[in-house]
């Protein structure tokens, strides 16, 4: 009788210990799984925020392009009104427009403005000033483009015009100078052609 009571007591004790063990295991699982109450990692696709890439078309770029566009229209009005100096000043305004840093359009627009500026200056008989604008445009170029090729084209026109002025000269130095200017003009045109061909091949996806 005594041994039976003892066995029952041990059984009850064992069951109680098992219950406590289950509770302790649950507590352990809670401690290891809660991660200090920090929010669990959200499901993928919920928190990913598309960044605002710096190379995206934004309001700053549109404002700069709009200003450049307005300066060109202003220059056209001045030209149509017979005021080339004011037209040149208006085109210089394009060069003063502040574009977003690193915007490729800035280089293209400035190169095109310098080409126009050089043509306007050349038309006004300021060949050296026109060549200075071309040199400045080529110096600022960081890549080949159709606008850079156009700068070389205008450079060839300037050199051609300078050589034409010397065509009627009788002095041997002027003849030599005219010949050299023509040679440089051909080099400039060839450079423009080469750039255009390379870019066209690149755009067409050909090596």
């Amino acid at each position: 009788m005594t041994s039976l009571s003892s066995a029952r007591a041990w059984t009850r004790l064992t069951r109680a210990a098992l219950r406590v063990l289950v509770v302790a295991l649950a507590a352990l699982a809670a401690c290891t799984g809660s991660d200090d109450g920090r929010p669990a990692a959200p499901p993928p696709g919920r928190v990913t925020q598309v960044t605002q890439p710096e190379d995206g078309i934004d309001q700053h770029l549109m404002i700069a392009l709009s200003q450049a566009k307005n300066f060109h229209h202003k220059a056209k009005v001045y030209m149509s009104d017979g005021k080339p100096d004011l037209a040149i000043a208006a085109v210089r305004g394009v060069l003063a427009v502040t574009f977003p840093a690193g915007a490729p359009e800035a280089e293209d627009v400035r190169a095109d403005a310098r080409a126009l500026l050089a043509k306007l200056l050349l038309a006004q008989g300021q060949a050296d000033a026109a060549m200075s604008e071309i040199d400045a445009g080529l110096a600022a170029a960081t890549r080949d483009s159709f606008f850079v090729a156009n700068l070389y084209t205008v450079r060839g026109e300037i050199l051609e015009a300078q050589a034409a002025k010397l065509d009627g000269a009788a002095a041997p130095d002027d003849v030599t100078r005219a010949r050299e200017l023509k040679r440089q003009a051909i080099v400039a045109y060839d450079k423009s052609i080469a750039i255009n061909e390379a870019l066209q091949r690149q755009l067409m996806g050909r090596p």
């Binding site: 490729p104 293209d108 890549r143 483009s145 159709f146 090729a149 755009l203």
Partner: peptide
């Protein structure tokens, strides 16, 4: 994207 204008303008 902001990008070069070459494809848009083409050879001049």
């Amino acid at each position: 994207r902001s990008r070069p204008a070459d494809p848009l303008v083409g050879a001049i």
